[in-house]
Amino acid sequence: MGRFHRHDHDHAHNHDHAHDHDHDHDHDHDHDHDHDHGDHSGYSTGAERVVVLERIFAENDHTAAANRRDFDAAALVAVNMMSSPGAGKTTLLAETLRRLHDRVRIGIIEGDIETSIDADRLSGFGAAIALINTSNGFGGECHLDAPMVRSALGRLPLAELDLVIIENVGNLVCPAEFDVGAHARTMVYSVTEGEEKPLKYPVMFRAVDLVVVNKVDLIPHLDYDLDAFYANLRAVNPGVQAIELSARTGAGIDAWCDWLLGLRPEVNPAV
């Protein structure tokens, strides 16, 4: 993530200084965007160029930091859980609650575009659940961002919780871009998605501390090469942890629960 450059913008003197290439690349980069009136140098008639150099995610990240402070003040650990649709997040969460609910006080923030189906599946395990429907009139957001998570915090008794799991919207693209203020990030990947997923969605696979490799009970029925998957995963994120499990059979879920229980607020600070 680039540093936050905040320049004094002296409007009278900043004409056409925007293309000074402070990033160190030494090659031709892709200028073939559709607009030919783009980033050319030279004076544009009747226009004044004002340098901004402001990160577009700055506002989201500011709110994410506020969320993290609230989690820290409540002495709890927050985990951002991501996956593609159907990878098994909700089934894994239900099994997690079944095993941990009498040992750990858990809150769930549940992101869903339209329905409360997932939240309904998770009720009955003694966890506090706050549902965020991300529908916004344009067909629904595909991710949770920090302000959405912030809006749910008031509906959870944070002071009484040890662990908050944020179940993001099922999507391998958008959620990876947004820091929501969690201390650790994980994704549930299922072997039915194929070995090449890390190469196709490197931003997601790079954004997490742990990859849960789910549905391993199905491997005997698939043409699936687990070693090839790990090679692809290490290519995009060499240091990432992985836990193989089956939310259906229960194999490996204890290791996942141990990972959750081992998290501390000061460990794995989200970048």
């Binding site: 925007a18 009747g46 160029r49 340098v51 901004v52 402001e54 990160r55 577009i56």
Partner: peptide, 14 residues
């Protein structure tokens, strides 16, 4: 390089 996402400048009408 490659994870930049920022507004570099604005062209404002005189």
């Amino acid at each position: 390089a490659g994870d930049e996402f920022l507004i570099t400048s604005l062209d404002l009408a005189e």
